[in-house]
Design a protein around this nucleic acid. Structure first.
Lengths: 91, 91
DNA sequence: TCAAATTACGGTCGACGTAAGGATC
DNA sequence: GATCCTTACGTCGACCGTAATTTGA
């Protein structure tokens, strides 16, 4: 289970498509596609499905996405905290 | 910012030493040492210091560790949720 | 001086991008 | 037939382990 995989899942959920997610994450479409595939393979679950309008979560995906979002959010806060500390120190 | 780096930080904090952390994470001492070094370098902060009894967090490290713990915990819950789902499906 | 941490170095494996191939509307 | 997703393939870089060096009690 890798960070880029979790980020990919969250981004696809946000945007509804792999192609848009790839733009957000600044990687190519195939990279995102593989990330998700590998994640699903490792977890042994289908997380996403094609629907009439883009990619959407499966029932299982819906139970996973919350944890994925929390993970990404925690990382973001760690990053922000570090910047915050540096901000005071660096002047 | 990589997962193995964050895991390393948490493990060192838990155990108080790099050598013990390396056992928990099933990697070698140098690997942990580098992970932390790279993380500190990327964040631009010193997170750990040698003390009379093992490695301990700096003030800055103390402000970071909580987010690191949350990140690791979120991942763990994601994993558990997946196992839980698989548990029902797989019988 | 001994245990623990760091640095050096070579190898391997993983993740990426480009390119080609399906699927779906 | 156009757009999006997937598969194939080769490359490059990241991470690791072993070994050597340094540091600190």
């Amino acid at each position: 289970m890798k960070l880029h995989q979790i980020r990919a899942l969250v981004a696809i959920h946000q945007t509804g498509s792999i192609s848009e997610a790839s733009q957000i994450l600044h990687v190519t479409q195939p990279a995102i596609s593989r990330s998700i595939k590998d994640l699903e393979s490792e977890l042994g679950l289908a997380l996403l499905q094609r629907s009439h309008r883009g990619m959407s979560l499966t029932d299982e995906g819906r139970r996973i996405i919350r944890h994925a979002q929390l993970t990404v959010e925690s990382m973001r806060r760690l990053q922000l905290e570090a910047e915050n500390i540096r901000g005071y120190a660096g002047r």
